[in-house]
């Protein structure tokens, strides 16, 4: 038979353990959410999902590597429910790493009411994503279109000369999502 004091010791031990385990549970719940920023960092470092880095402000001039030519392909996609016409003005460019280039994407609202869209960039191969720098991009802001309005939207970018040498073609893709009323 268990003595009373052993019983209360046990109850205290159980309580302690339960609190610790609950703490662990809470911590792991938090960890689930912490994976969101961790994932973003990992993506930035490894190019896990081909997301490009954000805006490069006051870009430092870089040594232009004229001996190397990289092909940049431009791709335009529309998410479903985005009633636009959307296309790059040129399909591809030959660029030297380190130098800035500008190109345009054309978009036209085909609907009979105003629409707001957001373009989401993605780079393939993912390895190149962190070496793709933009100082000007229509993807930095929501784009509002009047009914039937068409726009030429610029992108100014450069390829970091640190781009791994095995990468010779970089694809820059934009997907237009409609963000008003339809949600996403």
């Amino acid at each position: 038979m268990m003595t009373e004091s052993r019983k209360s010791d046990l109850a205290a031990a159980n309580r302690r353990l339960v609190w610790r385990l609950l703490l662990l549970t809470t911590a792991m719940f938090g960890f689930g959410f912490a994976m969101v920023p961790i994932y973003d960092v990992l993506c930035e470092v490894t190019g896990l999902n081909g997301k490009t880095g954000g805006r490069v402000v006051a870009a430092q001039p870089m040594q232009v590597d004229a001996s190397r030519t990289v092909t940049v392909e431009f791709v335009a996609n529309l998410n479903l429910g985005a009633p636009w016409e959307f296309a790059p003005s040129v399909a591809r460019m030959q660029v030297h790493p380190g130098q800035f280039y500008q190109t345009h994407f054309r978009a036209k609202n085909l609907a009979s009411q105003p629409m707001t869209g957001q373009a989401i960039p993605s780079v393939a191969p993912g390895l190149a994503a962190s070496h793709f720098q933009k100082i000007e991009c229509f993807c930095f802001n929501h784009q509002r279109f009047q009914a039937g309005e068409g726009k030429e939207m610029p992108v100014t970018f450069r390829i970091d000369p640190d781009l791994p040498s095995e990468v010779r073609t970089v694809t820059l893709s934009y997907t237009f999502f409609r963000i008003d009323d339809a949600g996403g």
Partner: peptide, 24 residues
């Protein structure tokens, strides 16, 4: 708890306008 976190994010993406998993 990690699963709980993941499905909670789904729920907020659907009903509360978060964009954990929404590319847009």
């Amino acid at each position: 708890p990690v699963l709980a976190g993941a499905v909670t994010m789904l729920l907020t993406d659907k009903f509360f306008g978060t964009s954990f998993f929404n590319a847009a």
